[in-house]
Amino acid sequence: MKVTLVMAGDEEGGLEKHVVELANCLMKHHQVTVVAHEKYRSRLKTEFIAIDLSKSRRNIIVLFQLYRALKALQSDIVHVHGNKAAAMVGSILKFLPTKSVATLHSRKKNTKMFKGFDAVIAVSPNAAETLEHPNKYIILNGIEPPELNSDINKITPPVVLAVGRLVPVKGFDLLIQAWQDIPNAQLWIVGEGFEKQKLATLINELALEKSIKLLGFRNDITDLMQQASLYVMSSHYEGCPYTMIEALLCKTPMVSTAVGAMAQILPKQYLCAENDANALHHLIAYALENLKQVERDFIPVFADAEKNLVLDGMVNNIEMVYREVLDGK
Rank of each mutant, 00 (worst) to 15 (best):
V19L: 07
I60C: 11
A277T: 12
K94Y: 04
R68D: 03
T252F: 08
P157S: 06
K329N: 14
A102F: 00
K115C: 09
V169D: 05
E324G: 09
H282S: 11
L311E: 05
V80A: 08
I51F: 02
S56E: 09
K108I: 11
V101C: 00
G313W: 07
S42D: 15
P158V: 00
L288G: 03
L309R: 04
A261M: 10
L166D: 01
K251E: 15
Q264S: 15
A50M: 04
M88W: 01
A228S: 05
V255E: 05
A85K: 05
Q227P: 08
E21C: 11
K210I: 03
I245F: 11
G116P: 10
Y242Q: 11
L215M: 06
D173E: 07
E205V: 02
I284K: 01
R323F: 12
R41K: 14
A277D: 12
H236A: 13
L283D: 13
S106N: 12
I212R: 04
A162V: 07
L309W: 04
K112H: 12
K292E: 15
A127H: 00
T222N: 01
T201F: 15
V255R: 01
S124T: 04
K108H: 08
R41L: 09
S211E: 15
L214G: 01
S91K: 07
Q226A: 02
I49C: 09
S42G: 12
A305P: 02
F217A: 07
L230M: 02
I245G: 06
L63E: 05
A122M: 02
Q31V: 08
D304M: 15
S256Q: 00
A128N: 14
R41M: 11
A285Y: 10
N278K: 13
S100K: 07
V19G: 00
A261H: 08
